[in-house]
Design a protein around this nucleic acid. Structure first.
Ligand SMILES: [Mn+2]
Ligand SMILES: [Mn+2]
Ligand SMILES: [Mn+2]
Ligand SMILES: [Mn+2]
Lengths: 153, 153
DNA sequence: CCGCAAGTGTAGCCCGTGCTACAAACTCAC
DNA sequence: GTGAGTTTGTAGCACGGGCTACACTTGCGG
């Protein structure tokens, strides 16, 4: 074939998908950092089993992932001991928790029920640019909630 | 150890993460279905090379993924021929395109710039429950767009 | 101070999704 | 028709992140 019409797709499209895949790769690190921070705050320490329960995976998966994140200097641990955040890990956890909260609050502001808001936030949080995050925060403040949030879950 | 205090994490948390992982697994299928539909609409057919360019991956990745999606009866193709959507695939593509559009419109409504809106939409679209999607649509209508959307996609 | 259950680690498997390098098929232009 | 360049396919690799089964540590209750 000597070149068909050739779908002149916007290069933006490829970039867009590439970006999404990158966000994706960072997801696990963010969720683990967030989970470790939450556990330490709530119970004083983060253990493999607790992480497994919290994230809904087997302890084996946690062990391997923690090892990787330790290699990447986000977490630190020793065999059979609890798991800590490095300085970089703490920073990542703070960012992740802030994002998570902003997205969650925003979804609630939107009028989404708590259950779905929590579910959606867990995924959306990793795909929100700084600009979008700022827009969410802004609008949450400037206009009051459309639907008063009710207690639950 | 005879059981530590045991981090009594809400089971909701595990479910939430599990749900996100499920969304995740469905992402590729949705993006491919959407891309195939777009290409067919724009150029009459969808070829491996075009998909690769559109999605920003190598043609090898496309070939293997298309094979899987064919196994799952979302796409159909034959060696060296172009790629079609099955009935199920068409349905998936329609849903994906609708979601994509709603999310994109909503981000633009929020005041996010086109570039970031497109990037974020590509990821967010896969993590939006029906309830959230409905909320986005509703709010986009009831209050006029904050910033006029331009053509393209 | 010991046993035993809970917690943690290892071995080894699966699958999805990236890639490069190379081989085969196709099709347009000549 | 055929050659050459494009497109598609295959082989073989890497890595992330699921899992089960089994082994080893740990530390509490007795
Ligand atoms: Mn998350
Ligand atoms: Mn989170
Ligand atoms: Mn997408
Ligand atoms: Mn999309």
């Amino acid at each position: 074939m000597a070149s068909r019409p050739k779908a002149t797709v916007t290069p933006a499209s490829a970039d867009t998908h590439r970006r999404t895949r990158e966000d994706h790769a960072a997801e696990t690190a963010q969720d683990y950092a967030e989970a470790v921070a939450d556990l330490i705050e709530a119970y004083g320490e983060a253990r493999v089993t607790d992480l497994a329960r919290l994230l809904g995976v087997s302890h084996v998966t946690v062990v391997r992932t923690v090892a990787r994140l330790q290699r990447e200097e986000l977490l630190s641990t020793r065999p059979y001991r609890s798991i800590f955040l490095t300085t970089r890990g703490k920073k990542l956890a703070d960012e992740a928790r802030r994002r998570h909260l902003v997205v969650l609050d925003f979804l609630l502001w939107l009028g989404v029920g708590l259950t779905n808001a929590q579910r959606d936030a867990e995924g959306i949080e990793h795909h929100v640019s700084a600009e979008t995050l700022a827009a969410m925060e802004r609008i949450c403040k400037t206009r009051g909630p459309r639907r008063k949030r009710r207690a639950g879950g």
